[in-house]
């Protein structure tokens, strides 16, 4: 015989008796169970969007769109109500801008440091630590801003009020650093070593390799993480509600209390706003604005990633 005596005999093929009929049934059942769950999440999303649209349309039946866009104040519960959404948008942009100018540079530098400079050991415990930081409840950050950061900053900026956009924005920024750092780090780490070697082989220094080759290659992932961070900053609720105040006013002064879109939604839904009233519908109009803003950002991100993603085998 040609078979090697030291290896066990190969099993005869009669020993394979698959129950194809049963497998088929299981496949089918599993498929429908998954489809049902997928349907639930899709249906929920569609339901939310439809409610938003429906209530928003009702709202604009009572308040013309041009007033929504041109009023100079946001006073939906006053006797002579005003509905200037830009009051809320300016506050959201203010806190987000402060947050982003903290989170993007620090997050990106942390990511570069982690993936390129940190020894593997350090990276292996710093990365999970960073991700745990991302899990700290934002209400904690909110009180941190209100009770620690604001009093501290008041030492240097006497004009700073108890509630203000500055410390809310700063702490909001700190709270999204882990998101930026972790996602950018993934993007940078995924760049194959062969690319780095290619740069080193031309005589590049480490810095030249990172700035000239690694970061441009990871650009789409980095931008995606930035956009996600910006959406997070715009949609963040707890920190700004607690630390930035409830005072709708137009302008970009970071030292005074402001009211962001999210903070307004919190305030209005906590209060005794009767369902179906106009004040109740403002909730949805503001929600819709928020939704559109993040939607635009996400579409941009999607487009950008598609356009600039490079594939390496």
């Amino acid at each position: 015989m040609s078979t090697n005596p030291s290896s066990p005999p190969s099993p005869s093929s009669d020993l394979f008796r698959p129950n194809r009929q049963l497998s088929k049934w299981v496949e089918l059942v599993v498929k429908y169970i998954f489809a049902a769950f997928a349907l639930i999440s899709v249906a929920t999303t569609i339901g939310i969007v439809l409610t938003l649209i429906f209530e928003t349309v009702e709202f604009f039946g009572d308040v013309p769109l041009w007033r929504f866009l041109t009023d100079r104040e946001w006073t939906p519960r006053f006797v002579n109500p005003q509905y200037g959404i830009f009051v809320l948008i300016s506050a959201t942009l203010l806190t987000s801008a402060i947050a982003i100018s903290v989170a993007l540079p620090i997050g990106l530098l942390a990511a570069i440091c982690l993936s390129e400079y940190a020894p593997p050991k350090v990276r292996s415990w710093l990365k999970p630590a960073l991700e745990i930081l991302a899990g700290v409840p934002t209400v904690v950050f909110g009180y941190f801003a209100l009770l620690l950061v604001t009093p501290f900053l008041q030492n240097f900026i006497p004009a700073l009020q108890g509630f203000n956009a500055l410390s809310a924005g700063l702490v909001l920024g700190v709270s999204i650093i882990p998101l930026v750092a972790s996602l950018s780090e993934d993007a940078i780490y995924a760049i194959p070593g062969s690319l780095r070697q290619g740069a080193y082989a031309l005589g590049a220094t480490k810095r030249e390799t990172i700035v000239g080759v690694v970061l441009p290659s990871a650009l789409s992932g980095i931008v995606a993480s930035f956009v996600l961070a910006i959406s997070r900053a715009i949609g963040e609720t707890m920190i700004v509600t607690i630390a930035a105040g409830q005072n709708p006013q137009m302008g970009l002064n970071p030292f005074v209390p402001v009211m962001t879109m999210t903070a307004y939604i919190v305030q209005a839904s906590l209060g005794d706003t009767p369902a179906g009233s106009l004040a109740y519908r403002t909730l949805f109009a503001v929600g819709m604005t928020l939704f559109l803003l993040t939607l635009v950002l996400n579409i941009f991100s999607f487009w950008f990633v598609r356009k600039f993603r490079e594939t390496y085998e």
Partner: peptide
């Protein structure tokens, strides 16, 4: 040194 002794790798590694 690396400028004067260049290298080409097994897999092409163009930069993006």
């Amino acid at each position: 040194v690396r400028r004067r002794i260049g290298m080409v790798f097994q897999k092409p590694t163009p930069f993006s």
